[in-house]
Each structure stands twice: as structure tokens, then as C-alpha cells.
Amino acid sequence: MKSLEELYNRALELKNKGMSDKEISTELHLSVNTITWLLSKDLKGNSVSDTKIGWRSVGVYGNRIEKIAEVMADIVTEEISLDNVTSIIGITINGIPYATMLSDLLDRELIVYRPHPSGKEGMFSSNFAGVKGKKIVIIDDVISTGETMKRTIEDVHNQGGEVVLCVVLVSKLNSDEINNVPVRSLIRATMVG
């Protein structure tokens, strides 16, 4: 795990490049609240109420991503019938590699979604499948606060699709659902103490 000072320096570097707190939180796999706190506090004597999730060891090789995607595919088929799934959404940027592999493994369409950094309606890439009339599984790497997943579900609904399941590598949520959609993760990170 990186030290708090290293996280602060990396967050500051990204902020100086013009990234928003939301974009920095996505890049560093921390909640927006933690990034805001990190960039606005003196680093002495304060405790952090978040956990950084790093999966670089998986992400550097496609075959490792594929192995994780195989586990995610197993979870999907355990939770719902594939007759109820037409498409797989990958949330940019870290959900896309897993969603691409799942799309192949499950022989389903691939949809790519880019959330808007300010919380406005996101965008579905026109280079991939559309949303309207589809039954969708959403894939991402980490759920921290659940806000990105919540917005994705809402945007799918607004475009005429239906989300039947969300699957992530790691969840920091205390709940197994968002907007009445089941959320499943390979790992759940929970603060204790």
C-alpha cells in the first residue's frame, strides 16, 4: 500500500494536470470524499476513512484480466439466467477490459459507458452496442460510494434499457444492491474498528 504522502503527491499531480476530484478518485480507486479530504488537509494526525484498492498486478497482462473475467462470468451465470442478459456494459475506463472479456465469454453485446465527471448524464459510446430494449449486466472494477453505479443504472433506464445485475472486482459498499439492482463483487472491502 502506498503511504498517505505518496497518495497525496499523486492526487496533487493529477489535480495540477486539470483532473477533477471525481476523475482523480477513479484513477486512484478512492472515494471522492477521500480525494477532497486528501487535497484539503494537513497530512499530520488525521486518519483516513477509506481504503485504496490497487489491482495493477492483474491489469498488466490480458490473460490475468481474462481469468478475473472468467470468475465474473461464473458469478453472472450463478445469479441470473443468460436468457435474461443481452448486453454487458463496461464503465470507463477500468471496467472496459473486464466487460470486453465477459462479452466474449458470454457471447453478449458490448456497451461502453462514460460517466460525466460532474454527475450529469453520462454517455454511451456510439462505436458499441446501444442500450434501448436491452437487459444489461454492468461491469466495473471498484465501487466506492456507489454514485457512479447509481448514475449508470439511471442512465441505462433513461435510455430504455434494464439493468439486471452489477458485478465488480471490489465493493466497498455495505449493501448488496443499488437502485434495487443486485450488486455482486469478487471481494468486499469493509472498514472495521
Rank of each mutant, 00 (worst) to 15 (best):
L39T: 11
K132I: 04
L102Y: 12
G193A: 01
S175Y: 08
L186K: 09
G59R: 01
S144A: 12
G90E: 01
I89C: 09
I24C: 04
K44S: 13
V167W: 01
D140M: 14
L106A: 15
L12Y: 08
I143H: 11
G62W: 01
V192G: 05
N94S: 13
N158M: 10
T26D: 08
K120M: 10
T148V: 04
V142T: 03
R188L: 14
T86Q: 02
G45S: 06
N180R: 15
L30F: 11
M1E: 08
I65L: 13
L110P: 00
G119Y: 15
I153V: 09
E13W: 06
G161C: 08
S171P: 10
S171G: 06
T145P: 09
G119S: 12
Y98H: 11
V181P: 04
L43D: 02
L173A: 02
I139F: 02
L7V: 01
L186I: 15
N46M: 05
S31V: 07
D83V: 05
Y113V: 08
G95K: 00
I68D: 03
L105V: 00
D141E: 15
M19L: 14
D74A: 10
E162T: 11
I143M: 12
T190Y: 02
R184A: 06
L43K: 00
S31Y: 13
D50Q: 02
M149C: 05
T26E: 11
S81P: 03
S31P: 02
K22N: 07
G62K: 01
V192A: 01
E6R: 03
T77M: 05
S126C: 06
S175V: 05
I89P: 07
S103D: 05
L110Q: 03
V164F: 07
K150M: 14
V85M: 04
E121N: 12
I88M: 03
D42N: 13
P182S: 04
S185W: 13
Y98P: 00
